[in-house]
């Protein structure tokens, strides 16, 4: 019975690891730090001066590593807005 279960039951640790990685990537980006929120607002303001954009389509993400942090800024510019800018 024991051996049978050993082969059939899916190991749970890899799932825990995956869930945490997804969750924490999201949490670090949103509520994680004030810095990200401030950066998001200011970057948004600068870009909005030149192109029309949807504030929901701007993503600012901070990935923390032992030695470096990566700031990822993802701005989606609608097609008509970019034409206006050009």
């Amino acid at each position: 019975m024991n051996i049978f279960r050993l082969f059939n039951k899916q190991r749970s640790a890899p799932l825990a690891r995956e869930r945490l990685q997804v969750l924490l990537a999201h949490e670090r980006a949103s509520s994680g730090s004030d810095l990200v929120a401030v950066l998001r607002e200011e970057i948004l303001a600068v870009i909005a001066k030149h192109v029309e954009l949807d504030s929901d389509r701007v993503q600012v993400k901070m990935d923390r590593d032992e030695n470096v942090s990566i700031l990822e800024i993802d701005v989606e510019i609608p097609l008509n807005a970019s034409r206006q800018a050009a």
Partner: peptide
């Protein structure tokens, strides 16, 4: 339990939290 795959391993936690 970590060996059996039913508990997060040391390396998993280290990778997620990235502190020594």
């Amino acid at each position: 339990r970590a060996q059996r795959g039913d508990m997060l391993k040391v390396d998993d936690v280290l990778e997620i939290l990235s502190i020594p």
